[in-house]
C-alpha cells in the first residue's frame, strides 16, 4: 500500500517535472490531466474502511480532471491555434534551477511541519512541489492556455495536500476544492476562448501590449 502510494507520488512529481520542460500546450494539458487522475487515486489508498463515497468521489474527480477539463482546453487550443510555447533564452537553465529550488524548499517545509500523515511521508513535499510548480507554470509560460493549466496543477497540489492532512472530513474539503476548480476553469475557459476569437493571438506577452493601447486610449 505504502509502496503503491509512493509510486503514485513519484509519478505526480514526474508530471511536475515534465510540465516545466514541455513546449507543446497539448502536452501540458495532458500532463495536468494525468496528474489530476493520479491524485484522485491517492485518498483511495488511504482509507481503511470500505465506504462507497470515496470511490464515487474519485470517479467524479477522474471524469472532471481527466476528460472534461482537457477537452475544454484542447478545444480552446485548436480554436486559438495556440499549439506551441515561445522559446526563450536560458529557459532551460531557469526552469531547472527553479525546479531544484522548489524541491529543496518543499522538502525543508515538510520537515518543519510535523504532521502525522497516513499515506507515506513523501506526500507533503510532493504537494508543495505541485503547488509551486503550478505557480511556476503560470509565471514562466507564455500562452494563456498554459496559464490555465498551471492553475489546474496548482489545485492538484492543494488536493494532494488535502488528502494528506484532512483525516476526518476529507470529502467535504475535497468537494469544496473541486467546485472551486470547476467554476474557475469554466469562467477562465470562456474568457480565453472569447479573447482568442477577438484577437487572433492568445500569447500573453502580446496581450501585454494591450495595456499601452489602453493607456493611449485613456489619455485621449
Amino acid at each position: 500500500m505504502e509502496t503503491i502510494s509512493q509510486f503514485l507520488i513519484l509519478a505526480i512529481i514526474f508530471c511536475n517535472f515534465f510540465l516545466l520542460f514541455s513546449h507543446s500546450t497539448k502536452r501540458l494539458v495532458d500532463l495536468a490531466a494525468i496528474q489530476g487522475v493520479l491524485a484522485a487515486f491517492l485518498p483511495l489508498l488511504n482509507s481503511r474502511e470500505f465506504f462507497f463515497e470515496p470511490f464515487i468521489f474519485a470517479l467524479i474527480v477522474i471524469i472532471l480532471k481527466g476528460f472534461f477539463f482537457p477537452s475544454i482546453l484542447k478545444k480552446i487550443i485548436v480554436k486559438n491555434s495556440a499549439y506551441e510555447e515561445k522559446r526563450r533564452e536560458y529557459y532551460g537553465h531557469i526552469s531547472w534551477s527553479m525546479y531544484l529550488l522548489i524541491f529543496f524548499v518543499s522538502v525543508w517545509l515538510s520537515t518543519r511541519l510535523n504532521f502525522d500523515v497516513e499515506t507515506s511521508a513523501w506526500i507533503l513535499p510532493a504537494s508543495f512541489m505541485t503547488i509551486f510548480c503550478g505557480f511556476l507554470t503560470i509565471i514562466l509560460k507564455s500562452q494563456t492556455v498554459s496559464q490555465i493549466t498551471g492553475y489546474i496543477v496548482l489545485e492538484n497540489g492543494i488536493y494532494c495536500f488535502g488528502t494528506a492532512i484532512f483525516i476526518h472530513q476529507p470529502l467535504m474539503v475535497e468537494a469544496a476544492i473541486l467546485l472551486d476548480i470547476f467554476v474557475a476553469i469554466f469562467v477562465m475557459g470562456m474568457a480565453v476562448f472569447h479573447i482568442g476569437r477577438e484577437f487572433k493571438d492568445s500569447d500573453s506577452d502580446s496581450l501585454g501590449e494591450l495595456r499601452e493601447v489602453f493607456e493611449e486610449e485613456a489619455q485621449k
Binding site: 512529481i13 531547472w96 525546479y99 531544484l100 524541491f103 529543496f104 522538502v107 515538510s110 520537515t111 513523501w122
Partner: peptide, 12 residues
Amino acid sequence: SVAIMAFVFQSL
C-alpha cells in the same frame, strides 16, 4: 534531479 530526489527521499 532524479538522483537528487532519490537521495533526499532516502534521507527523509
